[in-house]
Design a protein around this nucleic acid. Structure first.
Lengths: 213, 213
DNA sequence: GAATGTGAACTTTTTCACAGCG
DNA sequence: CGCTGTGAAAAAGTTCACATTC
């Protein structure tokens, strides 16, 4: 396969999980893993894992499995996280601040290089250890162009989300990680991924319903 | 349909989105909506929406659509958010604090009633406006039993996540909203929903790859 | 006339099962 | 022999299209 076939979105989502688990194996100096090992660790079937990886190439060795460090590199390459990406954030409320302090981004190759807010009371402040100074919204387009930022994190309140998204896209941002509980309408070609606490909680609540009956 | 047929997980996920959009329509005093209206607002097809809602009952009127306030109540009922649920949180780091300050939970019927952390430096403190005092881990099982808490939010670092999850489940928690970037292994019957920033970011990064080529 | 609910057709995704390589 | 990669089969999910109801 390996070639430019259409790759299912669920396969790409799982690729991130594989990467994480592979890193866990690497941390323990495991040289190789089989699709079965990975599957057990992640709660997936071995066939699923082989099929997913095969969309991208022939990475394994029959009788042996996958070489851990090699596969990590390959998966990073596929996901585009082998090189650092600059990321900006708009909306420095509670959540925005937590995200700015989150150390996990850098580990994955994402660097938060700027934060913006419209609130004059916050602009100019520096969010602790992160050393990023909050800038006014007006400076956003300039920075996006100067640094060719493609990835934006949107952590403003829901009513402002669409407007801010439009401004990000206009400035040149191509992918938005949306934390606002609202549906964003963007041009096709612009990617949006939404992190929605309401949906997660309500889904759990629904399952609770079923198990009580 | 309406009957105890197997309901696809994606349909349940979307139900949350429908609820949110319905609330937006209600806020504007819209009396009824058609599946088409909902679909346009959410970027889904009308057929999808009708099919999803039909899993749960006959809520609409041909020629008219769905009565907004009525459907809101029904969906809340289905999701179990028509009644308040107590929620606890373990792990009062950056993210935990942000979650404790998040006002959206209450709006959806979830009440954060307690927060726990193992760090003695944090225990005893009260997280601003939220008025919740952080308690030591040792008090967790007692509270879960006393209040029959079924839902737990897990916002501890990845290496501690499995252990804390086990302790939550042992205490009686049935559903876990997991923010740690790790796969949790729990008994079948215990529901886990993971919010995974790595997966979201890497997915966006992947899409960026494709559009650049 | 407008819009639902739903079987049937279609599409996507997962699982199976096995030939073939190391 | 163990384990991959992959067609073929099965399952799951989505869209179509229309009879039916308001």
């Amino acid at each position: 396969m390996a070639k430019s076939e259409h790759i299912p979105a669920p396969a790409v989502r799982r690729l991130s999980l594989y990467l994480r688990q592979l890193e866990a194996f690497a941390a323990v100096d495991r040289p190789t893993v089989s699709s079965r090992d990975l599957g057990e660790a992640l709660g997936l079937t071995d066939a699923q894992i082989r099929k997913d990886l095969a969309y991208f190439g022939h990475f394994g060795r029959p009788g042996v499995g996958y070489r851990v460090t090699e596969l990590i590199q390959r998966v990073r390459r596929i996901l585009g996280t082998d090189k650092k990406s600059d990321v900006l954030l708009v909306g420095v409320g509670n959540l925005g601040r937590a995200l700015l302090s989150y150390r996990g981004f850098a580990k994955q190759g994402f660097e938060l290089i700027a934060a913006f807010d419209k609130d004059r009371a916050i602009v100019g402040k520096t969010i602790n250890p992160g050393s990023i100074r909050v800038r006014p919204m007006s400076e956003m387009p300039k920075l996006v162009r100067a640094k060719s930022v493609r990835l934006g994190i949107l952590s403003v309140p829901a009513p402002a989300a669409q407007d801010v998204a439009d401004r990000m896209v206009k400035a040149g941002v191509r992918c938005i990680l949306n934390f606002a509980p609202t549906t964003l309408h963007v041009h096709p070609g612009i990617a949006v991924s939404s992190v929605d606490l309401a949906v997660h909680l309500e889904q759990l609540s629904f399952q609770l319903m079923g198990s009580t009956t």
